[in-house]
Structures are given as C-alpha cells and as structure tokens.
Nucleic acid binder design. Sequence first.
DNA 1: AACAGATAGTCAGGGCACTGAGCATTTCAG
DNA 2: CTGAAATGCTCAGTGCCCTGACTATCTGTT
Lengths: 175, 175
Amino acid sequence: MTVARSLYRQCADKSDHGSVRMAAVDLTTHPGHLARRLQQAHYLLWNTIVSEETTSPQYAVLNALVAEPGLDQRTVGERVGLDRSTIAEVVSRLGRRGLLDKVRDPQDGRRSLLRLTDEGLRVHRRLGVRVARMNQVFLAPLAADEQAVFIGLMRRVADAAEGLRNPAEPATATG
Amino acid sequence: MTVARSLYRQCADKSDHGSVRMAAVDLTTHPGHLARRLQQAHYLLWNTIVSEETTSPQYAVLNALVAEPGLDQRTVGERVGLDRSTIAEVVSRLGRRGLLDKVRDPQDGRRSLLRLTDEGLRVHRRLGVRVARMNQVFLAPLAADEQAVFIGLMRRVADAAEGLRNPAEPATATG
DNA sequence: AACAGATAGTCAGGGCACTGAGCATTTCAG
DNA sequence: CTGAAATGCTCAGTGCCCTGACTATCTGTT
C-alpha cells in the first residue's frame, strides 16, 4: 500500500535544485539491490575460503551428480537453478577439467547424460568441509536463530520467483 | 558448532553405492546458493516488470548520480557496490546511450566526473514507479513484518562482507 | 626537482546468466 | 506413416562481476 509512496516520493514542490535530489531512492531498502550485493559477498567469500578453481555453480553441479549420477544435463540445470545455456557452459568447463563425463543417451538421442569421474568425486569431497566453513563465515553476523529465519525467508522468496519462470502448465482440463 | 557436522555428514560406512549419495549436501540450506538464486529471481522480475533496456546496476548508477551529481566514477561504484572494472563498463554503456556525461576532473586529472543528461534524468524518473512495484512483487511471498526482517538481515550480512573487501584502515590512533 | 607510493582508470581474460535463433531427435495427431 | 509440436542442446550476442597487469596522475619525501 504505502510502500510505493514512501519509496518514491515525487517532489511536487520544485525549489529549483534542492528538491531534485529528493527523487533519488535509498537502495539499501531495495531487496533486489541487496540480493545482488549478497551474491557478490558470497562470490568473494567462496573465492577466498573455498576455491579459486571451482566456482559455486560448478560445485552445485558436482553435488547434484553425487546425489544422482547419470542425470541428464537439463535436469541437472533444473536441480541447481541454471538455465539451458548456462548449464551447458558450466558442464563444458567441468568436462574440460576431467571432472565429469558426458555421453549421449542411447534411449533418447536428445539427452546428454552426465556422470562424475573419480577426480570429480574427489574434488567434491575435498571442497565439502570448506563449503561448510564458508557458510558459517557468511552467516556469522547473525545470531543462530536469525540464521535459520534468514535461510527460511530467502528460500521462500526464491521459490516463489521460481514459479514465475516455469509458468506452470495450464493444468490440462480447460473446458 | 554442529552446523558443519550436520551439513556434511561423512559416510564412514561404505555399502558400495547407497552411502555414496550421502556425501551430497542439501543446497537449499546453503545461504550462498540461495543468494545466487535470489539474484536470478530479481534479474527475472526486473526484466519483466521494470525494463529490458536498463538493468538494475545501471539504474543504481543513475540513482546515485541523481542524489549526487558530478560524483567521480570510483565513488559512484563504491556507492552502488561495483568494482572499478564493472563500474567502467556500466558507465560506458550509459554514456553510449546518452544518459550521462563523463569529463576529466580539472582539479585531479585521474578522476572522471559523471553527470546525468536530461535523458538520463528522464529515464531514472520513469523507472522509479516500476522499481517500487517490482520490489513489492519480489517480497510478495512474505508478510509485511517478515519483509522488514528480511531486508534487515540481508543488509547486515551484506554490510559485514563489505568490511572484508575494504580491509579497513588500521584506524590511526590505537593507543 | 626527483623519486616512491598511493590513487583513478583502462584493458585483457575468465566465469556466470539470460534471450533468441537454430538443429536434431522424439512424440503425438491424423 | 507422415507432418506438426514438443523437447534437449548448441550457438551468437549482451551484460554483470571479478582478478591481475598496466598507464597516468597526484602527493609526500628528501
């Protein structure tokens, strides 16, 4: 209701210059801007604490394949939240480093089936401890109960937006 | 304390294959992974609700220059959370579109001073309403009080990590 | 005046993330 | 069985984001 009003106070009075600055908003109250800064913070911590070679999205892919070996590329992307183009790039890099194998599905010639190599498994295992430590550092500014709340809220917002991506099938029966 | 243990349960027993999957973690409990997904969600909403031409970081730069016209490039980057390389690219794009002017500081030949053009001001004003609407949609899955909590938590985590970037001057007087 | 260090900006390079176009394969309707 | 629709993937193009190397300018010493 009043949110839009308070965020963007149009200056009806125009005292030449002083009121022009009123048109600017405070970005630290914008969730989108904070989400971006949060991700940058995470990028930084990952790079210093976890690994400089293996990125967070790459680790996510390795992790998905540890959980479900032989998954096809599209599904892996869906599991970790990467679109078709991005998952292709990430998989390509992991393949180039010999961390996973990629084979055409004999049953369905469109699919690419992915499977970790021993080296891929080893990298995933080695990084696990550091990832946990990084998570602690990331959330360190919050008290224990706040951390739980924070994660819950992030998940709910992210999941909600996920629904907007996959427009949800029109539910078969229409008339 | 127990966080690392619960997040990454090493499988001591090895029943061939079933226990291997235990090594995988649940990414939906990882703040970093959620931060990435959150930012993607924001990107999507921005693209559909606010603008396809002007991105969120670009808007942030415009906004900073509305608040403080004639600011130098580095400081603008600091205000909106963009490093020297990224701010250069964003400014270049905005300049190419004629939304801002960039001039060398006569007082200090290293600096580039930035100032919005009339068109830049117009774009910023036009987007303001949509940005507010987008923020509402983004936070819609949360109740009003939860939204406030969420923003507060994000800000604290982001600000804390900010400190790690700029190692903080040794603070002059120590004794 | 000269030199060392700090500072602002550029450039090259690598990675993530999206869209839109296009290709091959599979599936389904007729 | 055949053509249309759906599906999985690739490719080109754009933009954000970082690091490390380099240039130009300024500043404080000596």
